[in-house]
Design a protein around this nucleic acid. Structure first.
Lengths: 372, 372
DNA sequence: TGCGCAAATGTAAACCTTTACATAAGTCGT
DNA sequence: ACGACTTATGTAAAGGTTTACATTTGCGCA
């Protein structure tokens, strides 16, 4: 579209010089910078190309509906004026924006960034853009983004939050097509794309069992986070299969943070019942556990084995490097966006859950149980 | 604004039932859910409140210009309909969106998330919203966001990228008011808010000197990243003051990544010239260095001291915990947004640079140089 | 009573698109 | 040569606001 030389680069034409609709004057070229004060509108292009604005619009969106010669003239005019469609006006008219809003409570979540890349790639392949909203779990901010959605500034919603946007219920608003990613939305029928938590956790537990551990604690139990519940279930399934009685299982509550991992260690020491291996609900917890153990002077992995879930970037750089279950992040991102976009054109009726099978990443934090 | 009981909660009124402008029928209350199929417009509110749309708009934005009784009626109508202004139409009309776009090449940057919070708080205190654009250093994406800006979907730009958005030059477009945050834009006059790199780095180097080190390597030198250049300068200043000859200084190039830190260690071993302390251009590099040293079997901090810059979350959880210079992240975010918003109303002429003084965070990675 | 002024509200234009519909100009077959 | 299509283009409405300007109303004061 961009012309090659300086020839087309400049025009004598200046916007808003005509009070009436008028046949454009013959073009004369001068060496004046292209950029105008205010961005060019479709009308400027039309005037320059000596056509109506309707034709310009068509030349852009339905090129086959306009004669070749006209099309060329329009394209030149576009190049000259540097015209780009005013997305605001376009969206207002069309009732949609070709934008997807991703709502995340914490941009800093180490999982978020690579999932986002998957999301974005898929979106842009379908002509959609992605905007990120940072809620910080703040109801006010949630409300703000609801307004954003409400005025068609985004056509679809991707929830990374594990819950519907705060304020949603009170405002009695309908959400646009929505998909939950990474973390299922507890107690709702919002379609979900994420890792197969149960299977992944089971793999982890089985690996510990296969390494000879019989006394395996589960750190980070939760009653409210669906994903964590499922990981717990994977743990139980594996231990069931190994015929380890429920009474033998050490389960410690936690919120999935580093701090709660460290706290869990303290609790176990208070109770004075120590496992040989710690299976953690996620890597953050595992890091906390490793820190807690190191702080008490233990040598890892000799004294205890630890396994995580997620494979956050940091996992590699722990000492010992953390053995964990890897989130198939870009696959999750891709599929979630695909599901959402599909949903945009033909709303799906039944609940849908896409679970992706994760792999175990073996590093250095699990060994055979020693004689401590 | 929301009424208390169920009384105002419902209305018999249904939108778009009137072909003509007509005096609204007396309200009758029924128990029907409030939410309508399509979101309420200002016209619905006007009809319900028996006023013109102009009055509704005024009641919202200039309450003092409308009679108290009218205002109340309008507010009730708003509560009933659940009306929220269509931001799209508003922006189109007003030529601005009250949104700020933050462009970041990598959302995963551990510094980004807390700076963002500072940005957001300041923005919302002034009635602005924040949207995040993820460029991945991809020119196409940069272009996409330029279009976004071009159609007034954002009034200001905050660059976290260290460079202008790709595609800017070719599109000969003017950027909206812009401020660079965290990383100055190399070779431009864009105002910048960030840490005082020189002073911070100098503090770090002086701390190493005070700990008794005389052989201090600088890891992660760069010719293109302004912030890194400044850190290098701080290092030089400190060593100058300590009368350590430039010839004595070990300086290794790097890109500020974990990998490049590890690589730097390898290079030094190849050269067979080892310092007693490593001063790293940032924490990522420091982590790489510590990993590289650990991989070679050294015991930190006994064998070598390492100091970083940034204080990323991970720094606490290294073994030993990393001594580093803390980025005043939320202050940076706050000030950057403040500068941008100020800039929005009255464009500033002279270049402006706001440098915030950082503190040293002493942890465990620096000791007195031993007799290795 | 009537005039001037202030306060409250309404009317209509403008922001920039897209698109249904109307119009104009060819083309083709008979 | 003419009606039936097809193709290319133009006209104007609609989308939901904000706001300059016009109008109406009410009040105080001479």
């Amino acid at each position: 579209m961009r012309t090659s030389g300086g020839f087309w680069g400049t025009a004598s034409f200046r916007r808003r010089d005509f009070a009436f609709r008028v046949r454009p004057i013959p073009l004369q070229w001068q060496s004046v910078p292209v950029s105008t004060q205010t961005p060019a509108t479709i009308e400027d292009v039309a005037r320059l190309a000596e056509v109506s604005i309707a034709t310009v619009s068509r030349a852009i969106h339905n090129p086959e509906k306009v004669a070749k010669s006209t099309r060329q003239r329009v394209n030149q005019a576009i190049a000259i004026t540097g015209y780009t469609t005013n997305a605001m006006a376009r969206s207002l008219r069309m009732g949609r924006s070709n934008m997807i809003l991703v709502l995340a409570p914490d941009i800093g979540d180490p999982n978020f960034s690579s999932i986002l890349i998957g999301l974005e790639n898929e979106a842009r392949a379908h002509g959609y853009g992605v905007l990120i909203g940072h809620t910080q779990n703040d109801p006010e901010r949630g409300l703000e983004y609801l307004k954003f959605l409400n005025s068609n500034q985004a056509d679809g919603l991707l929830l990374f939050t594990g819950h519907e946007p705060f304020g949603h219920q009170e405002m009695t608003q309908r959400l646009p097509p929505t998909v939950a990613v990474f973390e299922p939305v507890f107690g709702s029928r919002i379609p979900y794309v994420g890792v197969d938590d149960t299977a992944g956790a089971r793999k982890a537990a089985e690996y510990l069992l296969a390494s000879g551990h019989r006394s395996i604690a589960f750190i980070g139990d939760s009653k409210t986070r669906l994903g964590h519940l499922r990981r717990r279930k994977g743990y139980d399934l594996a231990l069931d299969a190994a015929r380890i009685a429920p009474a033998q299982r050490l389960v410690v509550d936690g919120e999935g943070t580093i701090e709660s991992g460290r706290l869990a260690v303290e609790q176990l020491f208070m109770r004075d019942t120590l496992p040989t291996a710690f299976m953690c609900v996620n890597d953050a917890t595992a890091i906390g556990v490793m820190n807690g153990l190191a702080a008490r002077g233990y040598d890892l992995p000799r004294d205890f084995s630890v396994i995580g879930f997620d494979d956050v970037p940091q996992a590699t750089y722990m000492t010992p490097a953390l053995t964990t279950v890897r989130q198939p992040r870009s696959a999750i991102g891709r599929q979630a966006m695909a599901l959402l976009l599909e949903n945009l054109t033909q709303p799906l009726t039944e609940q849908r859950e896409v679970l992706i099978m994760p792999d175990l990443v073996v590093r250095g934090s699990v060994t055979m149980p020693g004689k401590r």
